[in-house]
Structure formats: C-alpha cells, structure tokens
C-alpha cells in the first residue's frame, strides 16, 4: 500500500474527526496536509482545521500509531505537527496561516521502534 508508506490517510475518504457546529465569519486560508489542499478559516486553530478535514494529525514517534491530540489546551503536547519548511507547531494553540504545509508522517515506517 504505497499510500500508507507516504503517511497519507489509508482511506482517501477518511472521515473527519471533528464536526463543526459554528462557522467562522472570516476569510478562507489555504493549507495542506500531506500535499492535499485543505481550506481553513482565519482564526481557526491548526488542529481544528485539520481534524474537521481528516481523522488524525500525525504519526507517533515511538508507537507508530496515528495521533489526533488529546487535551486540546496546550498541556499534553500530543498534537505537535511538522511543516514541510521544518517548523514544528503545537496544533491546538497555533492559528492557521496561509500556506502551512503539514507533513503527518516524518519517519519511514520501518524506522519506527
């Protein structure tokens, strides 16, 4: 399954984890997740922008499983994501910015302990 090796969702139609019940009245912001474009809204957290479009945020460094954050208040540090430009951000407390390119799987699968 080459898709899985690139860290992309196993299922192209992977369901979103979050369900938005109030819509931002702000301008759209273009970000991407593993190369696939996602339209976010200004003011939205990076975590909310990703989880309203995808089921998880990243691959865990040690257990190799997918993670989607946990405490959502900047304490557990479970939602740190890496951008293609090398920046590392805590998704729950970081507002989205135009052009953020999140790479969800940084480690090749066979190198994960």
């Amino acid at each position: 399954m080459p898709d899985q090796d690139r860290g992309q969702p196993r299922d192209a139609a992977e369901r979103a984890q979050f369900h938005r019940v109030a819509q931002y009245a702000s301008r759209p912001v273009g970000i991407s997740f593993d190369g696939e474009p996602i339209v976010a809204m200004e003011g939205e957290s990076l975590l909310a922008a990703l989880l309203t479009a995808r089921g998880s945020l990243r691959q865990h460094e040690f257990d190799g499983g997918r993670r989607a954050g946990f405490c959502l208040m900047g304490a557990c540090q479970d939602c740190w994501v890496e951008l293609a430009d090398g920046r590392r951000l805590r998704a729950c407390t970081t507002p989205v910015e135009d052009g953020m390119a999140v790479v969800s799987q940084v480690w090749p699968k066979d190198e994960v302990a």
Binding site: Q17, A68, C71
Partner: peptide, 11 residues
C-alpha cells in the same frame, strides 16, 4: 491513544 479520544476539558 486512538484518534478520537480526548480529555473531558478538551471536549
């Protein structure tokens, strides 16, 4: 650790 489990405060 499954995606979809959050703290109560987080929810």
């Amino acid at each position: 650790t499954l995606p979809g489990v959050f703290t109560l405060g987080g929810a």
